[in-house]
Nucleic acid binder design. Structure first.
Lengths: 229, 229
DNA sequence: CACGGATAGGGTCACCTTGACCAGAACTCG
DNA sequence: CGAGTTCTGGTCAAGGTGACCCTATCCGTG
């Protein structure tokens, strides 16, 4: 109706996090344009007319990284809509956060390269495209916070898993070493956080006593929370 | 480029919460259309071309409820973009959460009526317009959760305030009675949550011993959190 | 085979926070 | 004045946490 109101392009960008080699890592895709200055970007797609936002997020990951993530955790992070955030015109971007176990295939793209980058190596990829340097810290902080009061850490490991593997997820995401005995006490005492697989054990690559194997429990929230050191 | 991609209308809706008469209340506006079936709605506006999302949220509150909220807490809640959520065409709506002290002026509109509705009375206004019945519980849960681990409860009271007034904010938002002595111990022992105004006291409307007055402190987070009973 | 290194798993102890509860202080109202 | 209300300070037991210890059981190496 009023003059200054029109429509915007709406896009979805996905911050897909995983833990590989004890490091929190994020999926980045090569820039679309042949522009030399363009940085790597989060996988993102324009939303289709009849497509929900979360479906668009799954499609972005599938089309740009060749990853199907039907069972992965996927939640909305925030929406970024500054008028000048995209130089090609106004684009409102809804960011999603995805947590997946390490997919060992190195994420083939649709022609564009896609790869996981450890957080420590992000500096060499900066600046990222668009305002993705602003989305990234929000995604990391959300993941760190979610591990405190939800059972989502189990989304980062393949089942079955050991408590040592689960602890290394926390250590990678938080960037802090945890006391393994206290961690065990906390996890095991939280009802339905993890479920032991009776009689199943596994020895880690570095030796050591075989560890009990677990599966994800049904708990979604941790009461009380496991706070960062 | 591709055929099924176009642009969407982008709107901002605001869930503006306050505490009045010991009840958590939300600002609703009368339906715009003369449609008899239309329910009351959250104040919302289409985003202008050169306007940021949060500016649009402030404008929606100002234009639809006559309230200027320059210092109020305003944070993004979530984005609702189901293809069919608006019958007039696809509208992606970014919802914001606002927390304000009770504004005693009953919120004059721009011709449309606007009023605060206590949570208990919301049932008589249902169903709300569009998908606002889905936004509302998200806003309430966000507010309840924020009071646990942030100092935002002070946004609901006018300065200076007593600890009794602050406790009634928690009780209204959580819908639970709190032990006043334990509440006091927790609030006072949290560094920079509230600052006493030396020598200033106030007696409440029901009598009782005069209470020390406080102002908001600089703390943003509560360590450790004040968990719901 | 013996040993050290590494990881798992079980336990103790001091400290802190919390919830429940009690008691006194200081106001208003009848 | 007395009753009712609210504020404020205190105690106590229960539970969670961090720091630390010891033992169990694997791997690899000499």
């Amino acid at each position: 109706m009023a003059a200054p109101v029109s429509t915007c392009a709406v896009a979805v960008d996905v911050a897909l996090l995983t833990v590989r080699e004890r490091q929190l890592s994020i999926l980045l895709v090569e820039p679309d344009t042949p522009d030399l200055d363009a940085g790597w970007a989060l996988p993102g797609r324009r939303v289709r007319d009849d497509e929900s936002l979360i479906d668009c997020a799954r499609r972005a990951v599938r089309e740009l990284a060749g990853l199907a993530i039907p069972n992965a955790w996927l939640e909305q992070l925030a929406t970024y809509g500054e008028p000048q955030r995209d130089p090609h015109g106004r684009v409102v971007s809804v960011a999603y956060l995805a947590l997946v176990p390490d997919p060992n295939d190195p994420a083939p793209g649709d022609g564009r390269a896609a790869r996981f980058v450890a957080l420590d190596e992000i500096a060499s990829h900066r600046p990222l495209a668009y305002d993705h340097d602003r989305i990234l810290p929000d995604a990391i902080e959300r993941a760190r916070s979610k591990l405190e009061y939800t059972a989502l850490a189990t989304q980062f490991v393949q089942e079955p898993f050991t408590l040592g593997e689960l602890r290394r997820v926390y250590e990678a995401v938080w960037g802090e070493e945890l006391d393994s005995a206290n961690f065990r006490r906390k996890v095991v005492s939280t009802a339905d956080f993890v479920l032991p697989v009776d009689g199943e054990f596994r020895t880690g690559p570095g030796g050591g006593r075989p560890a009990q194997l677990y599966r994800r429990g049904t708990a979604e929230r941790l009461h009380p929370a496991m706070l960062r050191p």
